[in-house]
Amino acid sequence: MDESLFGQESEHTRVESLFLRGRNILLTRADFAPLIEQWRAHMQKHHLDAPVELQNLFQRALGCFTLHCVSRPRRQTLSWTINFQEPLTNLFLVGDTDEDTVAGRIFTENVAEAEYNSFYQEVGKRGEEPYRSFVDFEGRDPIHAAQEYYQRSEQRPARFFQLSETQFALLSAHPDWNRDWFYRVQEDDIMRLDDLEDLHTIETRFVKWECGCNDQRIFAALEPVFRHQADELFAGDDIITVNCPRCAAKYGVTREALEGWCALQDQ
């Protein structure tokens, strides 16, 4: 494989979008090694753990989701929830196309049971109410789930490719796309597109792992409960551990600090 096709220029992950002239297909590609390293550092920092199988599934979903975000317009926030029923697992991912940030987490507790696997996307645009779309799917592959979503909800096909442990690519169809070529192309062809096709660079974005959670946001989320059920919230303890719902980061919150936060809000 030609590693230079996915070259990185910083600790951020460099994601390219290129248009295949004559095919009317958009190629989005990246080597996500820097992003995956940031995610694993986040897991280690906050003492998070998951079975290797689930970590591999999340890494596969993270690559697909980031390519999806980069292929979208600016001024959007997006999230995917990929639900597997066997065993019960949710993969959650969130991204901001203005900040070029992504984050996420693995849920294995309090996952709802259903008769089918489910894929949810929520899109928020600046100044508009967010909207949600949904498809069901079979199997245990985030790539298959994402492609099902594109086919049935986006109403335009897409193909995701994992070319190595960290390299991913996305082909998405545009009007008058070359259907036969789109479904015929294989992984080896994707690695040789620079030599085989007329590629036109649309843009390059630099993506990093960042949730945006901090003490203030955690305090704000706990404030309504604390004001009405402080004793129940702390259950006799002086400190509680709170996980960010978006990235599972752990925050130690003392009763004294939360009281101080509420006092500041009352001023």
Rank of each mutant, 00 (worst) to 15 (best):
Asp176Lys: 12
Asp180Ile: 02
Glu138Met: 11
Tyr150Val: 01
Phe226Ser: 05
His144Glu: 14
Pro175His: 05
Asn83Trp: 10
Glu3Ala: 15
Glu203Gln: 12
Arg72Ala: 14
Tyr149Asp: 05
Cys69Ile: 08
Ala103Arg: 12
Glu115Leu: 15
Gln55Gly: 09
Ser164Met: 13
Ala173Asp: 06
Arg159Met: 08
Asp2Asn: 12
Tyr116Cys: 10
Arg246Cys: 10
Gln267Ser: 10
Arg217Gln: 15
Val207Ser: 08
Val15Lys: 01
Gln121Met: 14
Glu16Trp: 08
Pro175Cys: 02
Thr254Leu: 03
Phe206Lys: 09
Gln267Asn: 13
Thr108Pro: 02
Asp198Tyr: 12
Arg23Asn: 04
Thr101Val: 05
Arg74Tyr: 05
Ala61Phe: 02
Phe168Leu: 00
Asp49His: 04
Leu88His: 07
Phe206Pro: 01
Pro73Thr: 03
Ala103Cys: 15
Tyr150Met: 07
Gln38Trp: 00
Thr13Met: 01
Glu122His: 11
Leu67Tyr: 09
Thr204Phe: 13
Arg75Asn: 11
Arg21His: 14
Phe19Tyr: 06
Val94Lys: 15
Phe6Leu: 13
Arg156Cys: 06
Phe58Glu: 02
Leu26Phe: 03
Asp2Val: 13
Ala235Gly: 02
Val70Leu: 01
Phe32Lys: 03
Ser153Leu: 10
Arg23Pro: 01
Leu88Lys: 13
Pro73Ala: 02
Arg105Tyr: 04
Glu165Thr: 09
Asn214Ala: 05
Thr254Glu: 13
His46Val: 00
Ile106Gln: 07
Arg255Gly: 02
His42Pro: 03
Arg140Gln: 08
Asp194Val: 11
Phe107Asn: 14
Gly260Ala: 11
Gly260Arg: 09
Glu113Ser: 12
Asp180Thr: 05
Leu222Gly: 08
Gln38Gly: 03
Thr101Ile: 06
Asn24Val: 03
Asp96Gln: 00
His200Arg: 13
Ala103Val: 06
Gln85Leu: 13
Ser71Pro: 00
Val111Asn: 04
Phe65Asn: 08
Gln147Ser: 12
Pro245Thr: 07
Phe134Leu: 14
Ala173Thr: 12
Val102Trp: 06
Cys262Leu: 08
Gly236Met: 07
Leu67His: 04
Pro34Gly: 06
Asp266Lys: 09
Glu210Val: 02
Ala235Lys: 15
Glu16Cys: 10
Phe19Cys: 01
Leu233Asp: 13
Gly7Cys: 14
Glu256Gln: 14
Phe58Ile: 01
Leu233Asn: 10
Pro73Asp: 07
Phe182Met: 10
Thr241Asn: 14
Ile25Phe: 04
Met43Phe: 11
Asn83Leu: 15
Leu163Asp: 03
Leu258Pro: 03
Ala146Cys: 06
Thr66Met: 00
Asn56Phe: 09
Pro73Tyr: 02
Cys213Gln: 01
Glu165Trp: 03
Phe107Leu: 10
Ile82Val: 13
Cys247Gln: 01
Leu199Trp: 06
